[in-house]
C-alpha cells in the first residue's frame, strides 16, 4: 500500500482565521535542542498555509515562556493548542495556571483565549499513525505484520497510557488497517516494548514511538529495548537510527519509525483540534 492510498481523516477543511493567533505550547528542554524542533516545524507549516494572522510557539522549559508568550501577540483572539501527546498534569494544571485560563474560553489581558485539547488525543492522530507505518515499511504486507505503538508509561498516571490505548482501539477500526495485530506497549510499564518479539506472532513488526519529539527515548532507549542498539553511547548519527530499516532481529524483520510528532502532517492534527474546539465551544 502506498502512502497516498491511506484514507486520511486528518486534514479536515479549515476555515482561515486571519484575525486570530495560534499559540502552540510545547514542553521544551534545557538539555536537548532537538526536543523543541517539531513545534517550530509545525508552526512553520501552519504559517505557510496562511490560515492564521499569527503563529507562535511557547514552552515550559524554553523561551518564550507561557507567561511571556501573550506579549508577542497582536491579535485579540488566540487559540492555544498543547502540542502534547496526552492529557495530564501539563495540560490540566501547568498550562492553565501559566496562561491564567479558567475554562475552554478565557477573557484576560484584553484577549480572548481558546484552550484546545492536546493534539495526541485527537482522532485524526489515528490515520496519521497508519500513514506513518506505510512510509516506514513500504510494500510490507500488513496482514503479516504487527504494529506496536510505544509510549513512556509511568504507573503513576493512568492518563499517560490512555491516549495510546485509545489510539490502538481506534486504529483497529480503520478500513485501511490490515495489520494482524496492533498493540500498545511501554518503556516503563507492562506490556513492555522490550518483549516485542514474544508479543508479536508475525514475521514483520512496525514500531511507532508515540512521542512529539525525537529525543533520547526514540534515539537510544527504545532502540536498546528493541535490541538493535547497545547501551553505551548514541549512534554515530542519531538520525541513522531511522534510516537503517529494516532490522533483522530474533527471526523477525523490524521497521522503526521516528516519533509520530515529527510527521509533517502534525500541522493538520493541530488545525483539526482547533476545528473540533470551534464545533464544540464556539457558536458561529
Amino acid at each position: 500500500m502506498r502512502t497516498d492510498e491511506v484514507n486520511l481523516s486528518c486534514g479536515m477543511e479549515f476555515s482561515p482565521k486571519p484575525n486570530s493567533a495560534l499559540l502552540i505550547v510545547g514542553h521544551g528542554s534545557t538539555e536537548n535542542p532537538d526536543s523543541s524542533a517539531p513545534y517550530f516545524d509545525h508552526a512553520r507549516e501552519i504559517r505557510r498555509r496562511n490560515v492564521f494572522g499569527e503563529v507562535h510557539c511557547c514552552f515550559w522549559k524554553e523561551e518564550p515562556s507561557m507567561r511571556e508568550a501573550l506579549y508577542m501577540i497582536d491579535a485579540n483572539e488566540v487559540y492555544v493548542v498543547p502540542d502534547f501527546i496526552s492529557e495530564g498534569y501539563f495540560t490540566r494544571d501547568v498550562i492553565p495556571r501559566e496562561l491564567e485560563l479558567t475554562g475552554p474560553t478565557t477573557r484576560i489581558h484584553g484577549k480572548t483565549i481558546h484552550y484546545c485539547d492536546p493534539v495526541g488525543i485527537h482522532p485524526s492522530m489515528t490515520s496519521l499513525i497508519l500513514r506513518r507505518t506505510v512510509e516506514v515499511a513500504p510494500g510490507v504486507p500488513q496482514k503479516d505484520s504487527t504494529l506496536f505503538i510505544v509510549g513512556h508509561g509511568t504507573g503513576l498516571n493512568k492518563n499517560s497510557t490512555k491516549a495510546i490505548k485509545d489510539q490502538v482501539t481506534l486504529i483497529k477500526t480503520l478500513p485501511d488497517c490490515h495489520f494482524a495485530d496492533v498493540l500498545d506497549t511501554y518503556m516503563e510499564e507492562p506490556p513492555f516494548i522490550a518483549d516485542w518479539a514474544k508479543l508479536a506472532d508475525t514475521p514483520n513488526v512496525v514500531v511507532v514511538p508515540f512521542f512529539i519529539a525525537d529525543g533520547l527515548h526514540s534515539y537510544q532507549d527504545i532502540p536498546v529495548m528493541l535490541g538493535f542498539e547497545k547501551e553505551e553511547g548514541l549512534a554515530a548519527s542519531q538520525k541513522e537510527i531511522f534510516r537503517r530499516n529494516p532490522y533483522r532481529l530474533q527471526g523477525k524483520t523490524l521497521y522503526y519509525s521516528a516519533a509520530i510528532g515529527t510527521d509533517p502532517m502534525m500541522a493538520d492534527v493541530i488545525l483539526d483540534q482547533i476545528s473540533t474546539f470551534d464545533a464544540k465551544h464556539v457558536a458561529h
Binding site: E63, P64, R67, E68, A69, Y71, M72, V94, R97
Partner: peptide
Amino acid sequence: PASLGLWNAWKNDTIRVQNLRDKLNRQT
C-alpha cells in the same frame, strides 16, 4: 523570544511583573 513584546509593554507600563516569591509560590 518575546523581547519586542515585553519591551513594548514595559514602555507602555502594561507589563505584568511578578516578584520571585509569587513566582515560586505558584509552582506545583
